[in-house]
């Protein structure tokens, strides 16, 4: 299976975007080789600004650039973009509803060896809580590229979450990516797997295996965490009566939390949240960490089995 890291796809898409639109400006904070904004920097040096190791100033400058009419893409690791610069994101970018697209790479535990200080497990939760903010978590390279263009067209602030490791390609170029519209990749009546990012591919793998056991699982790529596709969630809740959410993020406040907010108010059904259980990450190989924190295909299978046992 062909693989690509979402950060790699982001870097390439930015170059295409820059060719198409003159108002695109890209910012980074001394991590351009890792976030892949270096591709854009090479192609359009006059529209690339390296803030140095100064994430707060980077986001502040991004706000100013956007207020002056630019479409700004600002990148760093998720810990620093959503964490270090949080209040600049909140007050300078979101409160002022500016066209700043915060594209944060190295999110989640698959950062690997750098360890817990560098693994954002709470960025979706904090970004989602900010009014005016749109939150996008693409699952593969193709959807990342489409998302970059959609995010450009979208009016207002966006937080896009990208990953470090190469992940299997799920889509081809025919993908119709719309912010706020979840994608039903597979339909089954027994249970719905709602996933984002790296977990979408794993949910699909698990669904194949479940089918062999006679369990029919629906799989949703919920690439937009906010605004959330409530209609789709309610429909799937009604159709299947059980939901498993999957994210490479804390089970507190992320995709799982968002889905629970919707179903508990509008269509109460069983929901099990798969994610990192209120813990920090640590050093290790990405695959080892996915195993350690319970985010493998095997864990998905177990969770589905448990869920179906208690499903009324």
């Amino acid at each position: 299976m062909e693989k690509q890291a979402t950060r790699d796809a982001y870097g390439k898409a930015l170059v295409e975007l820059g060719k198409k639109y003159n108002d695109v400006v890209v910012l980074d904070a001394d991590l351009s080789k890792s976030t892949k904004t270096s591709d854009f920097a090479k192609e359009f040096p006059e529209r690339f600004i390296n803030a140095g190791i100064a994430e707060q100033n980077m986001i502040g400058m991004a706000a100013g650039l956007a207020a002056a009419g630019k479409k700004v893409f600002a990148s760093s690791f998720a810990v620093f973009a959503a964490g270090r610069a949080f209040e600049q994101v909140r007050n300078s970018v979101a409160y002022a509803r500016l066209n700043v697209k915060i594209c944060a790479s190295h999110a989640g535990i698959t950062v690997g060896e750098d360890g817990g200080s560098h693994q954002a497990v709470e960025d979706i939760a904090v970004m989602r809580a900010v009014p005016n903010m749109t939150v996008v978590v693409p699952a593969d390279g193709v959807s990342t590229k489409k998302a970059v263009f959609a995010v450009y067209e979208h009016e207002g602030p966006v937080y896009m979450r990208l990953g470090r490791p190469a992940v299997p390609l799920i889509y081809d170029e025919r993908l119709d990516f719309k912010i706020g519209k979840g994608i039903e990749l597979r339909s089954g009546k027994d249970v719905t797997l709602i996933a984002c990012g790296i977990m979408v591919g794993k949910a699909l793998e698990a669904a194949e295996l479940l089918a062999k056991e006679g369990i029919e699982a629906s799989v949703i790529d919920m690439h937009t965490i906010k605004p959330l596709d409530e209609e789709l969630i309610i429909r799937k809740a009604e159709e299947t009566g059980a939901i498993l959410t999957l994210e490479e993020h804390s089970i507190i406040g992320g995709l799982g939390g968002a889905v629970c907010e919707v179903v508990s108010e509008k269509c109460p059904v069983l929901v099990k949240r798969m994610g990192i259980k209120d813990l920090f990450g640590q050093s290790g190989k990405p695959d080892e960490l996915m195993e350690y924190y319970g985010l493998t295909v095997g864990h998905i299978m177990n969770n589905v089995h448990n869920l179906l046992e208690i499903k009324p």
Partner: peptide, 13 residues
């Protein structure tokens, strides 16, 4: 260093 479970984390803990 940098292995799963090691006290020698990628960054000091």
């Amino acid at each position: 260093l940098r292995r799963l479970g090691s006290p020698l984390q990628g960054h000091p803990d």
